[in-house]
Write a protein that binds this DNA or RNA. Sequence first.
DNA 1: TTGCTTATTCGCATGATTTGCAGATTAGGT
DNA 2: ACCTAATCTGCAAATCATGCGAATAAGCAA
Lengths: 151, 151
Amino acid sequence: MRSPEQLVERFRSEGLKITPQRQLLFSLLHENAEHPTAEALFTTASAQMPGISLRTVYQTLTDLTEMGELGQVTFDGGAVRFDPNLTDHHHAVCDQCGAIADVSIDHLDAVSISKPNDFSPSSTSVVFHGTCARCTMPTSNLDKPTNNQTK
Amino acid sequence: MRSPEQLVERFRSEGLKITPQRQLLFSLLHENAEHPTAEALFTTASAQMPGISLRTVYQTLTDLTEMGELGQVTFDGGAVRFDPNLTDHHHAVCDQCGAIADVSIDHLDAVSISKPNDFSPSSTSVVFHGTCARCTMPTSNLDKPTNNQTK
DNA sequence: TTGCTTATTCGCATGATTTGCAGATTAGGT
DNA sequence: ACCTAATCTGCAAATCATGCGAATAAGCAA
């Protein structure tokens, strides 16, 4: 996703208005690597702007997605998660704490050759399920991230 | 998933009862490659057994899943789909008609090496999005599968 | 076959996530 | 300061899935 400043510029050039709600969400999403759900963003946003509506959060998130400024991912039927990282990447989901890490994969084209030759793929997504470093680590069970598992 | 006969045997050996509802679902799922949703199975089941409850369909599907006899997959936040194919495989989703095809991938281990080395993956799933043969085919636009897209 | 015990089924309520709608509000230009 | 269209907000409603309790029926024993 582009920077809040660039987004403001884009919204302006398209005749869209720059509201404080939008600006807040722009900043909350910028370089956010947590793959938050709409609810999570709403909670964070509410702390800084009491009274902001969950509906507005959904609306803005949908707008950004339709503008191609934001990505969406879902895992195992949970709530939709938003991803400002628009580069070609994949995900590693920790089944213990629910953390989601971005993963870059090289030579992915090497596997696509084994797909059925009567299917024309336009995109490929890979999801690893497993245990993240924090949850594997035997020592320092303190400061673990809270369990964000949805299911 | 095992055959209806084998499932009956397993249920019996575990003290579970063999009801007509369960038997019907066993047969509807056996070698079913359509990745149906609970609703779809309910519709099909209702045709053969009017009065069967959607709740029972969900219940049986959940039971089979917990017994490890059935797999579940979800794509893009849509409804959960059930997959009796328990072999190691992946999926190709047609964005046109919504059809989902099973895909086997060789040398998948070749890509897993590029994952972050602080993550211990226990499973990897790959999803191809694109256009299936039927929808690519310029001729015979007749007999196309109905659009099953959820989102 | 009859009856008993307990698993199942069924329908409804409830929960979670997301979208539709309409009136109140406000950004941005005149 | 004023206008107008874009936004925000709250609430209803849609979708998907699960919890719960009462009614039902499978499997077993006599």
